[in-house]
């Protein structure tokens, strides 16, 4: 049976993993390669690395980290942040990333998804959507960390992303991100019911129950979180044991070195 995935997200700034509530009070947490290896051993199913500065000068530093991560871990990982062109995607994949997450650039240039999917395959093109509720049951796609309303309907944009060839969607709820009150179940479920591709829920994880809520039914295929893992509020092995007890299918990791 296909397991529900637990995905730690590492925001990287100037070569370090950082955490800030939407670009404020950014705190230095750890070395990205060390943290990636720790999560790999603890049983994370995938990792996401997000280049939060995405400035031209820092790009090289970030890609160097991606290469080091690829040489260190043996689980899949996605790279996001600052992906604007086919060339950016190519560089990320060449550096060892398995998937590339596209957000803002797809809004300004939707053909990027189409071109990238036909060139590299849908399996490595992830469309990341920042959504915010503007009326009850109506979500719009936002840009720049939730500051700009693009006017696009989040459900329609998800469908368009699927049609253009994205192989997976990350649904990040701006309303709940960083406040640890749980994933946005209604938004995630609405999009999951509309599309056929896998859905990663993002934003709002605070306690283990939050993971259960979004993973136990057919709402999300994976749950992404950052600070609860970085600060050890929730340990991945404990979370997986908890989910197994609640009958959510998750991957168990062999306890000893096999080879």
């Amino acid at each position: 049976m296909l397991a529900k995935r637990i995905i730690p997200c590492l925001d990287v700034d100037k070569g370090r993993v950082v955490k800030g509530k939407k670009f404020q009070d950014i705190q230095d947490i750890a070395d990205p390669v060390e943290l990636a290896l720790r999560y790999n051993h603890e049983g994370a199913d995938e990792l996401v690395f997000y280049d939060i500065t995405a400035s031209h000068e820092e790009r090289k530093t970030f890609l160097d980290i991606v290469e080091k991560v690829a040489a260190t871990i043996n689980i899949p990982f996605t790279v996001g942040g600052g992906i604007r062109s086919v060339e950016d995607i190519y560089q990320a994949l060449q550096s060892g990333a398995d998937k590339v997450s596209i957000n803002s650039a797809a809004i300004t240039n939707p053909t990027l998804i189409e071109t990238a999917a036909s060139k590299f395959g849908s399996q490595c093109i992830v469309l990341s959507i920042d959504a915010k509720e503007i009326n009850t049951g109506k979500w719009n796609v936002f840009q720049n960390g939730g500051r700009i309303d693009t006017g696009l309907d989040a459900i329609e944009w998800a469908l368009e992303g699927e049609r253009l060839g994205a192989g997976e969607l990350v649904i990040n709820s701006i309303d709940v991100d960083g406040v640890k009150k749980g994933y946005n179940l209604q938004l995630t479920k609405t999009i999951a019911n509309a599309v056929y591709i896998p859905i990663v829920a993002s934003g709002g994880a605070g306690i283990m129950e939050d993971f259960y809520q979004v993973l136990h039914s057919d709402i999300a295929d994976a749950a992404l979180a950052a600070s609860v893992f970085h600060y050890n509020t929730i340990s991945i092995p404990a979370l997986k044991n908890y989910l197994v007890e609640k009958s959510v299918p998750v991957r168990s990791v062999p306890s000893c070195q096999l080879y």
Binding site: M1, L2, A3, R5, D45, S122, Q123, G167, E168, Y196, I197, P198, D221, A222, R251, L258, Y259
Partner: peptide
């Protein structure tokens, strides 16, 4: 089912050969 089949899934081993060692 959702396509692509993406993620971790279990192997049901039908017969043991050298390739399935451990």
């Amino acid at each position: 089912v959702k396509v692509p089949h993406m993620g971790w899934n279990t192997l049901q081993i039908r017969r043991n050969k050298h390739i399935t060692t451990n």
